[in-house]
């Protein structure tokens, strides 16, 4: 009886979000799924080709290069953005003076357009006029000087760096919000019990914000899987596809080469990859919780 009393509220509350989401996000996704099974240049009639597009991309070495690049970006973002975000947030949380100023400053890079950041970094890396090499020389690491964007070994990481760095502030904000929602008494009583700062962090604070860590990890993974702008602006994904991610490769295929069928197929693989990673991650999170 009670169960049915809930129904009108449930429907009333869920309907708006469900409708908008389904109409403007899910249906377009289904359409993209359909395009991925066709040959379409964006102008003439679509020709149904079944799974040919997928066969094409899976046998294309460029696809696998961008695939690897994307995975590298996901891993590097996870290893840098999350710990850095958490560390900075925790330092700010520990009764730091000027916390508000720091918090705002850390967030600033997030709001700056990637075009500007990318331009700045291109100038930064430039071996003729840039300061990066000069800086290395100044601190005695002159041996590491190189043409960052023209060296096969460094160029992908040089393109990743601005993006990974730019969004750390996002995680600082989320973690700081999470830390501040921990009841103060919890930490205080641990302090009274004589726990050290590291102990407090790992045994009191971390378990409290585990939910938010999950949020950050998912945001970080999906954000990296969709990465586009920095690579597109700095190098156009090149040379070749050496600094392209799946998102860049998809855009280039669909909008530059007008092959919307194959472009949509690449999109579907991005979605599938995200799904797999998210499901794996949730399984893992559930395992560690038990």
């Amino acid at each position: 009886m009670k169960k049915y009393r809930k129904a009108p509220v449930c429907i009333g509350f869920l309907l708006p979000v469900f409708l908008i989401y389904t109409l403007f996000l899910f249906i377009p996704l289904v359409q993209t799924g359909y395009y991925s099974l066709t040959e379409w240049n964006g102008i003439t009639e679509k020709i149904f080709v079944g799974l040919d597009n997928f066969r094409d991309i899976f046998s294309n070495s460029d696809y696998w290069i961008t695939f690897q690049n994307t995975i590298k970006l996901v891993v590097i973002s996870l290893l840098i953005q999350i710990p850095m975000g958490l560390l900075l947030a925790y330092l700010l949380y520990m009764k730091t003076r000027g916390m508000k100023i720091y918090r705002t400053v850390f967030f600033l890079p997030v709001v700056i357009a990637p075009v500007a950041i990318s331009l700045m970094f291109s100038l930064f890396y430039n071996s003729e006029i840039g300061v990066f090499n000069r800086l290395l020389e100044m601190i005695g690491l002159g041996a590491f000087q190189t043409n960052w964007l023209s060296n096969i070994r460094t160029l992908l990481y040089a393109v990743m760096a601005p993006q990974v760095w730019q969004y750390i502030g996002l995680y600082v904000t989320i973690f700081l919000g999470a830390l501040q929602s921990i009841p103060g008494e919890l930490v205080e009583s641990a302090e009274i019990d004589g726990a050290s700062r590291t102990q407090i962090f790992f045994h009191v604070v971390l378990p409290e914000i585990v939910n938010f860590t999950n949020i950050c990890i998912v945001l970080c993974v999906t954000g990296s899987l969709k990465a586009f702008e920095h690579s597109w602006i700095m190098t156009g994904g090149g040379p070749g596809v050496r600094s392209a991610y799946l998102g860049v490769y998809m855009y280039k295929t669909a909008f530059v080469n007008s092959d919307f069928g194959t472009g949509s197929a690449i999109t579907m693989t991005i979605v599938a990859l995200s799904l797999v990673i998210t499901v794996l991650f949730n399984k893992l999170a559930a395992l560690t919780r038990d």
Partner: peptide
Amino acid sequence: YFSLGIMIPIHALLIPSVLI
């Protein structure tokens, strides 16, 4: 279902959304 959307690159939505 609701978490699917976080994974869709915006470029994939351009043409379908214009049509809708």
